[in-house]
Design a protein around this nucleic acid. Structure first.
Length: 827
RNA sequence: GCCGGAGUGGCGGAAUUGGUAGACGCAAGGGACUUAAAAUCCCUCGUCAGCAAUGAUGUACCGGUUCGAGUCCGGUCUCCGGCACCA
């Protein structure tokens, strides 16, 4: 055994050993219980960052721990390898996106190997490979067949200078993130996936996501945004037309003093004669800086009270939500209130705060702002005097009865627009024929291969628009001349089902029904038991995955509705008070860390500095502390190697401690306590930081240990072996090396997780805290398991306690078993 | 604005069901070893008073419940995250 701990030598050695022995290969055909442990796969941007190190260290601890617990573990890794950075690199440096991506993958794969992560690389997926994206196209076609994919015209963010659509997150402060041009809303025909079909199911199933952080579930619920209300038709005065509005506040219907249409509402263009005015307001659509209105010159009839109310066009009314038209109740909605003040429209109070005398209140009610709370109805005809929530029921019923409208449920969730005017993505498998329209590519012709031979100029939109040999094709229906779709899919499609792809061996994905037997690996491994990743995906990726899982379920491929049983969202890695970023200059490079301290130290610090769900404050000094800890373990074993080798570990369940010294007994007890503590900390929401702290305590105990006779060395060896076993999931290389140095014939990898003996873990004596009126006055060592009477007897003999009580009367004593006694005394 | 979460030493963080606040680590100070330094090892380390034993005080702030509150309840402040004209 080397005297010095040298991770550079130890780590590659064991990485090679594990790989040679194929230890982490997962095989579905196994009687053990399965455990599918998954971390979010990375975008191959070039090199891994500390966020990855943290994410994958957490996942690896769980995977290794579960293996030791006897589970058959699936722990895969892959690459989310379509996306804009590759294309931007092509434009900027002239490297083909494919070359750039594959070079990044091979470098990052090397980095992940260096971290000693226990992946089954035989299941690696690369989303930019045709073998993978073929299935994106296949799912798309299946969704077309089931009416879950469709094409429609909608408004999108458009950069006039780059001539392409931008995703919402690529629009920064109304400007293009790349060229700073003002982004405009442009109407484009796009492909959509009908996620709203599952809106209700995605929402109600949220309550079954017991293994997810509440925060994430809540974000999903809010994103889906269910609201219950009514649609009401307002007849246009003097026209044989009506306007349908949606409201959740039908209790305020009598207070509707005007109506607003979205500028994009089909009726807007019909009601407005001055098109330039309409154009003006359309360009300001959905911009939050100011509310703009335009009177149409037309009026509606409020169906509740037959009052004539003006129709406006307002830039803040969204076409995408509800019906694209609203009733405006300025007295009870702040936006309408502001609008009414600006355009001098009437304000009519119909809800009064629910006080003692509401009628009196109503008269003296001078509005300075809208009253948005609930209350009692006034000025509302037959509904006067009714409380808001009951009035909502009654008015909804009245509307349905009179045929004025109906109860409806609305969701904020919109269908998912997946078309991207980008090259580096999955081609949408559709062919446009002048005669047959949009025709899906037949299944047998999949995959539609993304052509490699294209030019990257960065101007004029997607390079595919110029790829004649790709575009020109024949119609699958009529065999006539036709053109291919040149848009590619949003890369979130790729990541919406990759966890299913891992259930197959590399490049053998197939959803052919004949391969989906009841014992198929897909059925065996799904769902993911533990998913780990950044909270930034709380809505998008996780919601899309839940949607895809349901589609795949409805295709009869899997039974599960939910892909991820348990979810852990790890916090960010922070340094000097900010997220690590190049612009802040606070980036820690994993390569540098591994070079200087090794991957065990890098992993250990990432796990020790904070519990996984919290942000982690990076500290270079803290890393040194982690390194010091591993060095101390190395040295204590090195120093005692002869005695350790000459001894056999004491049996874990030994109860006769007669031949063991006091020091040995203490160490034995501490060891059992540590096994218990580490196990329960891992079980308790993966609190690795306290588990590692417990191991540090055990090491401190080992440092102070002085062996008496031979049995003591057996205890010492027992403590050391268990420390290594407990350490293995966190820092596998050093654990394996030292385990080997002890002369153990078989590797630590296959060893089972240790168990503790409660009997031995329990202290023989406990320190009893003595409180007088809740304040600590004394402490007393007593034997465990005494009766209350015996405890009291001892406590009242205690000198300090006697002094503290003095002549005062004892009113009450409270005893907390094994911990404390509180004596309540009088004056 | 709405919805969440969090506030504990010089710092990261412990305290699991209401029962010893500050585990573990970092930093700092002192000591040992060394010609010296690094490394390592040992000791001290919330604040105030005291030579000390010890006492008082302390978990953002104010109040409450309780024998007992970092933990529960009500209110206030600050910070972080999400959503944001969703009618």
């Amino acid at each position: 055994m080397e005297e010095r701990y040298n991770p550079k030598e130890v780590e590659p050695k064991w990485q090679k050993h594990w790989e040679d022995k194929n230890l982490y290969k997962a095989i579905a055909d196994d009687p053990r219980k399965k455990f599918y442990c998954l971390e979010m796969f990375p975008y191959p941007s070039g090199r891994i960052h500390m966020g990855h190190v943290r994410n994958y260290a957490i996942g690896d601890v769980i995977a290794r721990y579960k293996r030791m617990q006897g589970y058959n573990v699936l722990h895969p890794m892959g690459w989310d390898s379509f996306g804009m950075p590759a294309e931007n690199a092509a434009i900027k440096h002239g490297v083909h996106p494919s070359k750039w991506t594959h070079e990044n993958i091979s470098y990052m794969k090397k980095q992940l190997r260096q971290l000693g992560l226990s992946y089954d690389w035989d299941r690696e997926v690369t989303t930019c490979s045709p073998e993978y994206y073929k299935w994106n196209q296949w799912f798309f076609i299946k969704m077309l067949e089931k009416d879950l994919a469709y094409r429609k015209t909608s408004f999108v963010n458009w950069c006039p200078s780059c001539t392409t659509v931008l995703a919402n997150e690529q629009v920064i402060d109304t400007k293009c993130w790349r060229c700073d041009s003002i982004v405009i809303q442009k109407e484009l025909e796009q492909w959509f996936l009908k996620i709203t079909h599952y809106a209700e199911e995605l929402l109600s199933a949220c309550d079954e996501l017991k293994g997810w952080p509440e925060k994430v579930v809540l974000m999903q619920k809010n994103w889906i945004g269910k609201s219950i209300g009514v649609e009401v038709d307002f007849r246009i005065d003097g026209m044989n037309k009506s306007i349908k509005i949606f409201t959740t506040r039908q209790d305020t219907l009598f207070g509707a003093t005007f109506l607003c249409l979205s500028p994009n509402h089909p009726l807007s263009a019909k009601l407005i004669t001055d098109k330039t005015e309409l154009e003006k307001i359309t360009t300001k659509y959905s911009q939050t800086d100011e509310k703009l209105g335009l009177f149409t010159g037309h009026y509606c009839i409020n169906p509740m009270n037959n009052e004539k109310v003006p129709i406006y066009i307002a830039n803040f009314v969204l076409m995408e939500y509800g019906t694209g038209a609203i009733m405006s109740v300025p007295a009870h909605d702040q936006r309408d209130f502001d609008f009414a003040k600006k355009y001098e429209l009437p304000i009519k109070v119909v809800i009064a705060p629910e006080d003692k005398n509401h009628e009196l209140r109503a008269k003296s009610y001078e509005l300075k702002e809208a009253y948005e709370d609930e209350g009692v109805l006034i000025n509302s005809g037959q509904f006067d005097g009714i409380i808001s929530d009951i009035a909502r029921e009654k008015i909804a019923a009245y509307i349905e009865e009179k045929g004025l409208g109906k109860k409806v449920v609305n969701y904020k969730l919109r269908d998912w627009g997946i078309s991207r005017q980008r090259y580096w993505g999955t081609p949408i498998p559709v062919i446009y024929c002048d005669k047959c329209g949009a025709v899906p590519v037949p299944e047998k012709d999949l995959p539609v291969i993304l052509p490699e031979d294209v030019k990257f100029t960065g101007i004029g939109g997607s390079p595919l628009l110029e790829a004649e040999s790709f575009i020109n094709t024949t119609c699958p229906k009529c065999a006539g001349k036709a053109r291919r779709e040149t848009d590619t899919m949003d890369t979130f499609v790729d990541s919406s089902w990759y966890f299913i792809a891992y259930c197959f061996q590399k490049n053998s994905i197939s959803f052919d029904p004949s391969l989906l037997t009841p014992n198929s690996s897909l059925k065996y491994w799904m769902p993911v038991d533990q998913y780990i990743g950044g909270v930034e995906h709380a809505v998008l990726h996780l919601l899309y995955s839940r949607f895809f899982t349901r589609v795949i379920r409805d295709l009869g491929i899997i039974k599960e509705s939910e892909p991820f049983t348990n979810l852990l969202t790890q916090g960010m890695v922070i340094k000097d008070g900010a997220k690590m970023s190049k612009s802040k200059g606070n980036v820690v490079d994993p390569d540098y860390l591994i070079e200087k301290y090794g991957s065990d130290t890098s992993r250990l610090f990432s796990l020790f500095a904070a519990p996984p769900e919290k942000d982690l404050d990076w500290s270079d000094k803290g890393v040194e502390g982690a390194y010091r800890f591993l060095n101390r373990i190395w040295h204590i074993i090195h120093k005692n190697q002869t005695s350790l080798r000459d001894s056999k570990a004491i049996s874990p369940n030994i109860t006769d401690l007669a031949d063991i010294s006091e020091s040995g007994r203490r160490l034995l007890r501490k060891t059992h306590q540590t096994i218990k503590k580490v196990t329960s900390d891992i079980e308790r929401e993966y609190h690795f930081n306290t588990a590692i702290a417990a191991l540090m305590e055990l090491l401190n105990e080992l440092g102070g240990f002085e062996a008496g006779d031979k049995n003591d060395w057996s205890v010492f060896r027992f403590a050391v072996e268990n420390m290594l076993l407990l350490l293995f999931p966190f820092t596998p290389h050093i654990a394996e090396e030292l385990w080997n140095a002890l002369g153990n014939p078989s590797g630590i990898s296959g060893h089972h997780w240790p168990e503790w003996n409660e009997e031995i873990a329990n202290e023989e004596e406990i320190e009893l805290v003595i409180q007088i009126n809740g304040k600590i006055k004394s402490k007393l060592m007593i034997i465990r398991g005494l009766s209350d009477e015996e405890i009291k007897k001892l406590v009242f003999q205690d000198q300090k306690t006697k002094e503290a009580i003095g002549q005062k009367s004892i009113r009450k004593t409270i005893i907390v078993k094994g911990k404390l006694i509180n004596i309540v005394i009088g004056e």
